[in-house]
Amino acid sequence: MDLYFLGTNAGVPTLQRNVTSIALRLPEERRSFWMFDCGEGTQHQVLRSPLRLGKLEKLFITHLHGDHLFGLPGMLSSRGYQGGTAPLTIYGPPGLKAFLDISLSVSQSRIPYKLDIVEHSGGLIFEDDGFKVEAGLLDHRVDSYGYRVTEKDSPGSLNTELLLSYGLKPGPLYGRLKRGEDVLTDDGLLISAASVVNEPKRGRIVTILGDTRPCKGALPLAQDADLLLHEATFAHELAEMARQYHHSTARQAAELAREAGARGLLLTHFSSRYITPDDLAPLLEEAQAVFPNTQLAEEFRSFPVFRRR
């Protein structure tokens, strides 16, 4: 599981960076990915990436500003032309459905797959056997949400070497043991499931915040996250400007990561005043001074979400 970046700039695209879009690539057995925000030009970025729109399962919009939204109608249309037939669900704030209804109907765009639009105002917005997604309101000029993606714990693997030493070969009894049932072999040996099943795999937590000033609503979303993605529009020397424009500095993002007990912090949504890597270096330095395990997001690069023990 990893985060893959399609756009890391704030406000408008530049020659160096596109506007916001992030893919969360799910574990291999799921064979799909989720997307968070879809700024203008996202479908062009996808063409330069290993992603395939037919594998896009869910899309989450943090807020309805254009640099997070304007790429959506074109990408939805292209998904159909590129052979995408699986259902797609889009989650976002109220107003998202009206935007898409007008855009797609006026342009007479053909969507040859089932498209569900779920407007929400926070709380638990999705849950299945593998994941749950919670949303919380942040502090921006319009309603902006953060998303907390929690992977559920998975059963531990069987100690097959030990089972083979008992003379038990792969078969139906293996399945019963993995489900936690004790079994009695044909030889009269009682095998306790607890003795042959390894520890469960702890699920990972990824928090992706929309545009925001520092606020109380961000903390529960970021609590104990294995990877926290936070905007860092400005360096802290421009903290007053950040406050006026309802954005955050790199240091403020790091302060949240430290307070929340996150394991890793990724910074994104950089102002166009920071063009080169040298321009961005002070943002990384001020964040690492507060929270050492901080990285800068880069387009067309993946950042793994490691499983904690």
Rank of each mutant, 00 (worst) to 15 (best):
Y4I: 00
F5P: 01
L6D: 00
A10W: 15
A10Y: 15
T20V: 11
A23V: 04
R25N: 14
P27W: 05
P27T: 05
S32E: 14
S32Y: 02
S32R: 13
F33S: 13
M35N: 00
F36A: 09
F36Y: 12
G41Q: 01
L51N: 07
R52D: 14
H63F: 11
H68V: 08
H68F: 14
L69H: 08
P73L: 06
G80N: 03
G83V: 08
T89I: 00
P94C: 11
L96F: 06
F99E: 15
S105Q: 13
R110P: 02
P112I: 07
G122A: 01
I125G: 04
I125V: 09
F131W: 10
E134V: 09
V142Y: 10
R148I: 04
V149R: 07
D153P: 00
S154K: 15
S157L: 13
L158P: 00
S165K: 14
P170M: 12
L173G: 09
L189Q: 09
A194P: 00
A194H: 02
S195W: 01
V196F: 00
R202W: 08
G203H: 01
R204F: 01
I205L: 02
L209C: 13
G210R: 02
L221D: 04
A225N: 06
L228N: 03
L228K: 03
L229N: 06
H236R: 09
S248Y: 04
L256M: 10
A257H: 12
E259K: 15
A260G: 10
G261R: 04
A262M: 04
R263N: 13
G264E: 15
L267H: 01
T276H: 15
L280A: 04
Q288S: 07
Q288C: 07
A289E: 13
F306H: 15
R309I: 05
